[in-house]
Write a protein that binds this DNA or RNA. Structure first.
Lengths: 95, 95
DNA sequence: GACTTATTTGCACAAATAAGTAAATATAAT
DNA sequence: ATTATATTTACTTATTTGTGCAAATAAGTC
């Protein structure tokens, strides 16, 4: 485990470790279809600009994927990738 | 998933999502025996007071367990509990 | 008791973070 | 072209967070 790996993993956990962002993740989790930011905005009752920023952070950390669709941007969870990283950590911790 | 559950999980992820704290976790991860804070302090080259505070946060979130031993306090990872919570999240995300 | 070692706490400070508002941008519809 | 909708960005503010240092506490040793 070198420093940059720890750093990357910490960044992922940090991205997930904020209430509104984790709520967005759970919301996306329950959606079959990719969702636009407005929809997510409704579910969390926070300002659109805030949702936008949180989604950007989640995207940077690879939690979420974005696809442009007209004037909307549809977001979906990178389910397998995120789950895999969490399980890897779980395995390391369990030893 | 109610709000307080999301909140608790976010707090755990936040606790893990900081470089020095995650480093402490990995360090404890590689130890069979519970470690005192000084030892951990060496491995991360940060001030003892900082290690102390980080360990307190990890303890509050149930990541780590503390046992008094003379003038030392020995810390050990709650391996199975933390691993379980991470896997639960992974399962939810994978759907 | 004096001294050493381990750990915590108070204080100060800089940097990071989350949030809201308003303005800007992009794209579709009329 | 104008308008409406979706999203991002700039700016500001308030709060939190991570850190180091020095002092305080706790507990063992001489």
């Amino acid at each position: 485990m070198d420093a940059s790996e720890v750093n990357e993993l910490a960044a992922l956990l940090k991205a997930l470790g904020e209430y509104n962002r984790l709520s967005l993740v759970y919301e996306l989790c329950s959606c079959e279809e990719p969702q636009n930011a407005m929809c997510l905005c409704d579910c969390c009752s926070i300002d659109a600009s805030v949702v936008s920023r949180h989604l950007k952070i989640l995207e940077q950390e690879g939690v979420v994927q974005m696809r442009k669709d007209g004037r909307e941007r549809k977001y979906s969870l990178n389910r397998t990738a995120v789950a895999a990283r969490l399980r890897t950590l779980a395995d390391q911790i369990e030893g």
